[in-house]
Every structure is written in structure tokens, then in C-alpha cells.
Nucleic acid binder design. Structure first.
Length: 518
RNA sequence: GGCCCCAUCGUCUAGCGGUCCAGGACGCUGCCCUUUCACGGCAGAAACACGGGUUCGAUUCCCGUUGGGGUCACCA
């Protein structure tokens, strides 16, 4: 017998409503952000709603601040929810499952009443023992299922009176899904096509826990139904439990939403999905924004604090597992909304590549206007206690943007523009600084001194005039000149640098170098 | 291990039976531009996991093998 389940049945006619439903057990990592992003893009593309619901049914794993973090991270990314936590309450709330606690029991009772579920009294210890025993006997994977439930303490094996008595006595119990035997559960996943699993390979999952809270499985289905979720877009790690969810919808007699299971974000190196710990290990952030662990006082770094633009970050994430089929790679959020298509999300996992992420940021940085770059430069300078003349801010920002990936590079790649060199590049010193250098520097110095206008063009013609007159090649004087003024062997145009520094400073640096490099 | 999902350059991917001795991007290499670095421009190396089918014809469809991933809790 088949429990055929075609979730595609004209669901598209009703309004698109999707949700991102994280568990507040810590900071959201980039895989979660991508899931939220795809949900958001899909919703906006179809004029639908994007909701944020918090799945905090496991009180033991609750982490203070995690919910706030999630809201803030999504807001930074520009994908704030229309409804739910961090969005509006449109009458479907509360949007925190812990606050919905009272309503789940009733649904569990419904399942009990229609014979889709049963009560079980086995304690955690007892279950552990059974599993250990099974393992010793060579069965590595003991399941609470249509066979083993016959030997357990539940409402299927115990007399009705006994069950009633136990419950009346306050004995703790759980409610388990009663899976039908040998049924093929089929559903159509938007990304993967038809997925099929036999109930014989599934187990009687706990739906309602001893602590009075539902498990994810029950709460998820009830809430998605009540909140009229049309499409469930989530990570592939949920694929194995999707058949259970399909069965739950059928047990309730509800129409199932359309499922789409996203491919996972994998570690750049070894095997496995990208985890929270990979960040430190590999030297790149795995979180959207900084996360401070209150217990350990440690901070896990985020993309925001690393200097990423939210648009670049989102752009990078969007292309990890999806692409428009054209050769376009740079997308604004709005363009992503227009181009996004769930059906063209790839099936296989994507290894995360930080280098590509940096490239995206570089592209966004270079695309910035002079005003914006100047203001970014100013911010960076201020935070370092450095200063640059207002009138040069734009010039410096544009000049440095060519070699910057992050805003902070605007300063760090050109520190010599804001402070005198304290050391001189060793290699350039030995290779380019000759016995004639001090004399040449003095000559240039005196010529600069005579300059009335000290701008890049004047400096250049003055400098080149000197070269011509003395019949010297640029390579003979240029590098040592750069060394004297900046302490470096390479960098942007010296003439622009000199203009920015100003005559007085340039002359001071030259004499300082002559003095120091004797 | 059981079950499920997946499989094109190092990485992200295009390709939905002939247009593919496989296209783009990141990274890498070389050349040009440049006093230098960077930017930019140009060029290059680099992939259809394997074996069977189906077909006049498979990267594209089917099966198997191998490989990878996920999942097997009173966690989500």
C-alpha cells in the first residue's frame, strides 16, 4: 500500500508564506543565514510573507542572548522578517514555541484519539539499557518501532486500566507516533524531486516529551499549519525526518506545505558540514556578526566586524548553492529577489570558500562612491587615533581602495600616509639605497622647497625635471625616494603621496631618512 | 552499520541527447600597463568518478559500483 503524498497539489494558488525557525541555542552560523536568505528571497519573489519563529522547545539547550543575536544578525543582512520575532504580530502569535506550550497537548491528544499515537512510560534509563543490550547483540541501531514497541511499556501493551492508573498517579510519560507498518511514504521535494521512504525504516518518534513540551516534530507541524506556512524551506539535515512530518500532516488531516531541502554548506577542507568550530580552526568567520559567549567570555568573530558589507556577504551566500543560469555574479538584494528560483537550487553540498567571499567584498568596496569611501576612511582613522586632512580624504580613499578588500585596509595598507616611517624596508634599503642616494635626496629636497604649488602634477614635473637634468633613470632615484618618504619599497604613486603629505612633511621625512640611513 | 540524499576544473557552478576536444567566476601561472605594489587588460593550465545499458548519438536518460554528505535522542 502506498501513502502517496503529492504536496504540489495547487498549493501555489494560496499565498506564499515561509518561515525561518531557528533554535536559540547559540549564534546562527552562515548556513543558517543562507537558509533564512533563501526563504526571504522566495517569499519576496512571490509577494509572500517571511516569518521568524523561535523553536525553543528544548529548555535545556536554551542560550541567553541567542534570540536577540538572530534578530540582529538578520537585520544586518537586510532580511528582516515581516511577521513573528523581530517583525509584526499578525495574529498568529506567539512566535516563540515556549510561549505556545499550552496548545500543543491538545494536538497530541487528537493523535492519541485517532490512533496515530500512543503513550509510552519507558524511562530514559530503560531505553538506554535496551539500546546497549541490542548493541551487544550486534544490532547497532535499535529503534522503537512496530516490532519493539510490543515489548515496551506503553499503552499498546499495557491494560487500559493500568495506563489510566499510571497517568493518574503522575507517572511521567511521552507520546509517540504510531507508525503504520510497511508503508511507502512519498513526497515531492522542490529541489530533489520525489523522495520515498518505507515506514519500516523509521521509528516511533517522540512527539510529546515528559516535561510537557512537544518535540520539534510536533510543534513544527502544528505551528506551520496554524501559521499557514505554504513552503517549508530548510536544510538537508531535515530530510530524514521529512517523511515523519508528512505522516503527521496526514494524521491530522491537514494539507502539507511544499518541502524544499537545501544542500548543506560543507567545510572547505575535510569532510562534513560547516560547523561553528571551523571558524577559528580555518581562520575565517562562520558567523554573520560577533558572538560573545557569556560563560567563557570568548568572542567568535563575525562577518560584520571583519569588515564585510552586508550586501557582499549576502551576495556570496546566495551564490553558494544557487545561481541564475546566467553569467551574472554580482547581485543586489533586490536583484536576487527577482532572479531567485527555488527549482534551480543545486542538490549537492557546497564547500565554503572564503577567498571568493573576499572577492565579493572587494567588488563592493570598489563600487563605492568617493564620498562613501572617504567617510569609511575617516571612520577607520578615528578608531585608530590617526588623522588626515579633510581635503585629502577623498583622494586617499580612492587611491587606497584599489588595494583594499575591507574598509580597514584603506588605512592599514597606507599607514605611511598618516604617520612617519619608523622603519625602512630592509630589502629596498640594501638593493636601492646607494651611496649617492643622500645627495640625490638633498637635491630633490631643495627643488621641492622652491615649489610654489605642491600638487601631484607640479611635484611630478619637478621630479622628472631633475632626472632629465642629471640624466638619471627613474629606477635610479624613484625607489630610494619612496623609501625615504614612506619607508616602503612599494605603494601608490609617489607624487600623489607627496601632495597628500604636504611639502613640509615630505621635506621633514627626507631629511629624517638621510639622517637615519647614513 | 541501517535508511535517505548527492556526484562537471582545486573551489562555486553553466550544461536539462547532437550546438561540448564542455562555458563563467574565485584561486593559480604567464604577458601587457606601471619607477614599484595594487587596479585594469590579455593569455594559459585545470573537470564530465568508474562500469554496464537505452539510443543513430551520451556530460546529459536508466541500472550497478565507487566516492561524498546527512540522519539514526524525551536536540533542534
Amino acid at each position: 500500500m502506498y501513502l502517496c503524498h503529492n504536496s504540489k497539489v495547487n498549493n501555489m494558488s494560496s499565498k506564499v508564506r515561509v518561515r525561518f525557525a531557528p533554535s536559540p541555542t547559540g549564534p546562527l552560523h552562515i548556513g543558517g543565514v543562507r537558509t533564512a536568505l533563501y526563504n526571504y528571497l522566495f517569499a519576496k519573489k512571490h509577494g509572500g510573507d517571511f516569518l521568524l519563529r523561535v523553536e525553543d522547545t528544548d529548555q535545556t539547550r536554551f542560550v541567553a542572548g541567542a534570540e536577540k543575536y538572530i534578530v540582529e544578525a538578520l537585520a544586518w543582512c537586510g532580511i528582516s522578517p515581516d511577521e513573528g520575532i523581530g517583525g509584526e504580530d499578525r495574529g498568529n502569535g506567539p512566535y516563540r514555541q515556549s510561549e505556545r506550550k499550552p496548545m500543543y497537548r491538545e494536538y497530541a491528544e487528537t493523535l492519541l484519539a485517532n490512533d496515530s499515537a500512543y503513550v509510552a512510560f519507558d524511562t530514559a534509563d530503560e531505553l538506554e539499557r535496551v539500546r546497549a543490550l541490542a548493541k551487544e547483540a550486534g544490532a547497532s541501531n535499535w529503534q522503537y518501532n512496530y516490532i519493539t514497541r510490543e515489548n515496551m511499556k506503553n499503552s499498546l501493551t499495557l491494560a487500559k486500566d493500568e495506563v489510566k492508573a499510571k497517568i493518574a498517579a503522575g507517572e511521567p510519560y511521552v507520546i509517540r507516533m504510531k507508525l503504520p507498518r510497511d508503508h511507502e511514504v512519498r513526497f515531492e521535494d522542490t529541489i530533489r524531486g520525489w523522495v520515498s521512504v518505507n515506514t519500516n525504516n523509521m521509528d516511533d518518534k517522540v512527539l510529546f516529551k515528559g516535561d510537557g513540551m512537544p518535540t520539534y516534530h510536533l510543534a513544527n507541524i502544528v505551528d506551520d499549519h496554524l501559521m499557514e506556512i505554504s513552503h517549508v524551506i530548510r536544510g538537508e539535515e531535515w530530510l530524514p525526518s521529512a517523511p515523519l512530518h508528512v505522516l503527521l500532516y496526514e494524521a491530522f488531516g491537514w494539507e502539507s506545505p511544499i518541502f524544499a531541502h537545501l544542500p548543506l554548506l560543507l567545510k572547505p577542507d575535510g569532510p562534513g558540514k560547516l560547523s561553528k568550530r571551523d571558524g577559528d580552526r580555518l581562520g575565517f568567520p562562520v558567523f554573520p556578526i560577533d558572538w560573545k559567549n557569556d560563560e567563557t567570555q570568548e568572542t567568535a568573530s563575525g562577518y560584520r566586524e571583519t569588515g564585510f558589507y552586508p550586501d557582499a556577504f549576502i551576495n556570496m551566500l546566495a551564490l553558494l548553492g544557487w545561481n541564475p543560469g546566467t553569467e551574472q555574479e554580482v547581485f543586489s538584494l533586490q536583484e536576487l529577489v527577482e532572479a531567485f528560483d527555488l527549482g534551480s537550487v543545486s542538490k549537492s553540498g557546497a564547500k565554503f570558500d572564503f577567498e571568493k567571499g573576499k572577492w565579493f567584498n572587494q567588488v563592493y568596496l570598489r563600487g563605492m562612491s568617493e564620498e562613501k569611501l572617504a567617510s569609511a576612511l575617516k571612520t577607520e582613522l578615528n578608531s585608530r587615533g590617526l588623522h588626515c586632512d579633510e581635503k585629502h580624504l577623498g583622494t586617499v580613499a580612492m587611491m587606497m581602495s584599489e588595494r583594499a578588500t575591507f574598509p580597514k585596509d584603506l588605512v592599514t595598507e597606507g599607514l605611511f600616509l598618516f604617520e612617519r616611517p619608523s622603519t625602512y624596508d630592509e630589502k629596498t634599503l640594501t638593493k636601492k639605497w646607494s651611496a649617492d642616494s643622500p645627495k640625490m635626496m638633498e637635491d630633490i629636497s631643495s627643488r621641492f622647497l622652491a615649489l610654489v604649488t605642491f600638487d601631484a602634477a607640479s611635484i611630478e614635473s619637478c621630479f622628472k625635471g631633475y632626472l632629465t637634468e642629471k640624466e638619471l633613470g627613474f629606477g635610479k632615484v624613484g625607489p630610494s625616494f619612496r623609501l625615504a618618504v614612506t619607508g616602503k619599497g612599494m605603494g601608490p604613486s609617489m607624487f600623489t603621496i607627496c601632495e597628500v603629505l604636504g611639502k613640509e612633511e615630505v621635506l621633514a621625512r627626507i631629511s629624517l631618512a638621510i639622517e637615519k640611513l647614513k
